[in-house]
Simulated scan of single mutants.
Amino acid sequence: MPSSDINYHQLAQDIKQWGHSLGFQQVGIADIDLTKHEAQLQKWLDKGYHGNMDYMAAHGMKRARPNELVPGTVRVISVRMDYLPPDAGFAQNLKDKSKGYISRYALGRDYHKMLRNRLKKLAQKIESQVGALGYRPFVDSAPVLERQLADKAGLGWTGKHSLLIHPNAGSWFFLGELFIDLPLPVDQPIEEKCGACVACLKICPTQAIVEPYVVDARRCISYLTIELKEAIPESLRPLIGNRIYGCDDCQLICPWNRYAQITDENDFHPRQHLSQQDLLTLFAWNEEAFLQRTEGSPIRRIGHERWLRNIATALGNAPYDEAIINALVQSSGQYSSMVQEHISWALKQQQDKKQLATLPDRKNQRLVRTIEKGLPRDA
């Protein structure tokens, strides 16, 4: 047990300094009372908004009760680390529908292991000062309400897109937590400053933000391209555009991200073979190439099959290109039935665009744009 004569106020200040030295941009401390979030969590689960992410419901209310997850926990040290890379190329990549858009957090090295290791070092530094203590680090790896804890710790407020926003750093940052058994003084939440802004609700391509602060994961492009293991619902495929891994639209539109800071971590800088690459180039990767080029990347977790599923969807959404049709035809029959379903769908989209693209009058050009947007032809 830690010594009873610890100066906890000084220790809290030291912890924040040690955290900064380890590369965290901010460190805050929260108590573990999340009872006010339990009803909302249960309502979200009851509506099925978690989709097939069964792990969200598997632990019941333990997600909102840190001391049940890690007995003895009395405080949570919450940290954030900026990840926005230089030369992100947001607009260029989304505008050019022949290129694959990958969420900015996934262009570099997987953050989970890095943050967890640094949280562990922070815990060891604390232990070296106060003696043996109980702790456990988490980085998106257990039933933890990380954004709610970070909110309590003063790292930002929860925006209407459900992500955390800091007034001087926007929302382009990772979160991590260190559960600990020390009764440290806690930090105060900061005031929410979204005001009347609903830009994130309006910009969402699939209208997944069903109301302020509530996201229906079943419609979210990040869920559809990363978490979903089955076929993407056909009605949502045209809305995905060229987003092949995740989506950043709600962050791109957020006015607070004008204050976002570029990351100091080289590991978060984009890998050349992932950033702003042609869809056809990415679609041509066999499984060996996929595994080699996504080593150490969060993208690897979806596997080659879902990678192809996502890119096939984007190829269907791309402007008509005979090279795309040829690639889709040549790949037919080579993959699983799930991937083949998306290849066949994409081929049909391209063939429809080809047929209409040969007709020069304005009406048919409007039909081409209608198909590209996934709308009924009589819209």
Results as ranks from 00 to 15, higher is better:
Y83W: 11
G100F: 03
L184F: 07
A153E: 06
G156K: 01
A208R: 08
V210Y: 00
P189F: 00
G108S: 09
K97N: 13
P143N: 06
N168E: 15
Y83T: 10
I165N: 04
D140Y: 07
C200Q: 03
F173Q: 01
I126R: 10
P185M: 01
L175N: 05
I190C: 05
A132I: 05
R104K: 13
R118M: 09
V130L: 12
L119V: 07
F174M: 05
A208M: 11
C197P: 10
N168V: 14
G159T: 03
L119T: 06
L84V: 04
S103Y: 10
A123V: 08
P86T: 10
Y135K: 01
V214M: 13
A217F: 08
K99R: 14
A88G: 08
D82G: 07
A88M: 12
S171I: 02
A106Q: 03
Q92E: 13
A199I: 07
M81K: 10
P86A: 13
P86H: 13
L115M: 09
N93T: 15
L201I: 12
E191A: 10
I209V: 06
E192Y: 07
Y213F: 14
Y213Q: 06
P167Y: 01
R136V: 14
E127H: 05
G100D: 02
G176H: 01
E191R: 11
G195Y: 04
A142D: 11
A196F: 00
Y213P: 00
P143F: 13
I209L: 12
P143E: 09
S128C: 02
R147V: 12
S128T: 01
T206M: 06
A199T: 09
K160P: 05
Y135S: 07
A91D: 15
G89M: 05
